[in-house]
């Protein structure tokens, strides 16, 4: 009962904080719009590159361009959502350096809610737009051949939620590491941006080690790629049964437990070392 009330309060405060952050970002509309367009442009050339590679090679491991666009779009949608929500995680370095993390500790609200509520970054909508539009474009090209029933739609939704969570958790791991290193952790970019890059292409194309990394350890592939393969009627990874493809999004759970434990460890370390 108390837990439920506390959860409700957290949710209420998150909405309140996020709403305020959006409101204050909307104050500078023209610069915001430009940032969105800019990001669309920067990431747009990435998709252009993919398109041009298709012109040369015609297929990627048997995948057609619309199929690739669906995968690419879904991965980028998830990444963009996580990137917009994770602003507070990204700010851990400065928060620790200037002592403002103490301020968060003095407030009666879970730390993660406070960090997530710090800002919902609308600037990241450029990637989101690109992700959604490439996904939509790819899907419209495929619709005549694949069937999208209720189970497929549910799986798609699960993949989107789980994929967003995985990226968010990668950022959380990064934030937890900041307790030790203080300086930002560029090497974690290998897993966030690198993971996004890697997951935008069918895992089937990689060597074994990378396939294992992105299904078993950092389960972006398990959460997005595998369920999508089931929907598109493609082989995800050789030798993997269909139920494992469908259960892919569940891989976010152990990873989430790991990330939260690491975060908890970081907070404990902070309060015994005192920053």
């Amino acid at each position: 009962m108390k837990l439920a009330a506390s959860l409700r309060h957290s949710l209420f405060m998150y909405r309140r904080l996020a709403g305020l952050s959006i409101q204050s970002q909307l104050r500078y509309r023209s610069s915001l719009l430009l940032s969105i367009v800019s990001q669309f442009l920067i990431i747009g050339v990435e998709f252009l590159a993919l398109y041009l590679m298709f012109q040369r090679f015609r297929s990627f491991m048997g995948w057609s361009l619309p199929e690739m666009a669906v995968l690419y779009g879904l991965v980028n949608t998830c990444f963009a959502l996580a990137d917009a929500l994770a602003y507070g995680f990204d700010q851990m370095g400065p928060l620790l350096k200037n002592g403002n993390f103490d301020r968060l500790l003095l407030r009666p609200l879970p730390l993660l809610v406070q960090l997530l509520g710090m800002e919902v970054t609308i600037r990241r909508a450029g990637r989101l737009l690109l992700g959604i539009s490439t996904f939509g474009w790819g899907l419209s090209g495929l619709l005549p051949t694949i069937q999208l029933g209720a189970p497929a739609l549910a799986l798609l939704l699960a993949a989107t939620v789980a994929g967003t969570l995985v990226f968010l958790l990668i950022f959380l791991v990064q934030a937890a590491c900041t307790f030790v290193t203080i300086e930002g952790l560029e090497f974690m970019n290998a897993f966030s941006y690198g993971g996004q890059q890697a997951a935008s292409h069918p895992l089937l194309g990689y060597r074994r080690a990378i396939q294992v990394l992105f299904t078993g350890f950092i389960p972006i592939g398990a959460c997005i790629y595998l369920p999508l393969c089931l929907i598109l009627g493609r082989v995800g990874l050789p030798g993997l049964p269909a139920w494992a493809h469908a259960a892919g999004p569940l891989a976010v759970l152990p990873f989430g437990a790991f990330a939260l434990a690491l975060w908890h460890l970081g907070v404990c370390r902070y309060s015994s070392a005192g920053g």
């Binding site: 103490d102 500790l105 003095l106 309060s271 015994s272 005192g274």
Partner: peptide
């Protein structure tokens, strides 16, 4: 102060 306010163990 930090200990009394719960920031530090």
């Amino acid at each position: 102060i930090k200990i009394l306010s719960g920031i530090l163990h």
